[in-house]
């Protein structure tokens, strides 16, 4: 009992620290958000402003922008701690790495994923999405960004100390199912079709992905510190 409570206090400690750090530098959670909105507004500029055309493209546009914004911020998950030695300190403390990964992914998601949800609300006006789509859009982004954070953590842990572009090349092909399912959910919702089956599948991926990808990330970190 004592053991679990110390683990939980570690989790809270790391989470608090990461959140405090990112609130100190406001850029870490504002920049992915603004990046997302910039990418979204590039599409009307490039493709024209016809309402029906834009709203037919919007699911893809929103998801590609979310994918890029989430991966843009991925470098910060482990690299910063690697550089200033925090990661070494934690590993020396002998606490399970699992709790570190868990806390860091959750913090990353709170700092980049949740602002993306707000930004996606704004993007529904930009891309003329019908109102009924807002709920499936938010739910799919909620699950999808969490999955993207998990995948990004794996890529970041594998490429600690390397460029972010390498981690993007590794992670982007693996994130294709998230993209396809997310677009499928929104498109089905626009066409008044049943989108729940896609949503359940995305949820199932999350249920498998949380333990699976966290374990892989733990392994990736311990490869780096052998």
């Amino acid at each position: 009992m004592n053991n679990t409570s110390t683990l939980f206090s570690w989790f809270r400690l790391i989470l608090k620290r990461d959140l405090a750090l990112s609130f100190k530098k406001i850029a870490t959670f504002l920049i992915p958000l603004v990046f997302f909105l910039i990418v979204i507004s590039l599409f009307p500029l490039a493709l024209g402003t016809e309402n029906s055309f834009l709203s037919s493209l919007s699911p893809g546009v929103i998801w590609v922008a979310a994918l890029l914004a989430s991966l843009l911020a991925v470098e910060s998950i482990f690299n910063e701690d690697f550089r200033d030695g925090t990661l070494d300190h934690f590993l020396l403390s002998g606490e399970p790495i699992f709790i570190l990964v868990f806390a860091k992914v959750f913090a990353h998601w709170l700092v980049t994923g949740v602002p993306l949800l707000l930004a996606s609300l704004i993007s529904t006006f930009f891309l003329f999405l019908p109102e009924g789509v807002v709920l499936p859009l938010l739910i799919s982004l909620l699950i999808g960004t969490l999955l993207l954070s998990l995948l990004g953590a794996l890529g970041s842990a594998l490429t600690i100390g390397k460029t972010a572009i390498l981690s993007a090349v590794i992670v982007l092909p693996l994130s294709i199912p998230i993209l396809i399912l997310g677009v499928a959910i929104i498109t089905s919702a626009i066409n008044n079709q049943d989108y729940l089956s896609y949503l359940y599948f995305l949820g199932a991926m999350l249920a498998v992905g949380i333990p699976g990808l966290c374990l892989a990330t733990v392994e990736a970190i311990s490869i780096n510190y052998d």
Partner: peptide
């Protein structure tokens, strides 16, 4: 080299688990 081997092993094991999901989702797409 050893670390590189293990990192590549890890990503190929993760990849082979995700590949069926990719195939299924590509079918949906």
């Amino acid at each position: 080299k050893q670390k590189g081997d293990r990192a590549a092993s890890l990503i190929s094991v993760v990849g082979v688990i995700i590949v069926p999901i990719i195939k299924k989702s590509v079918d949906w797409w």
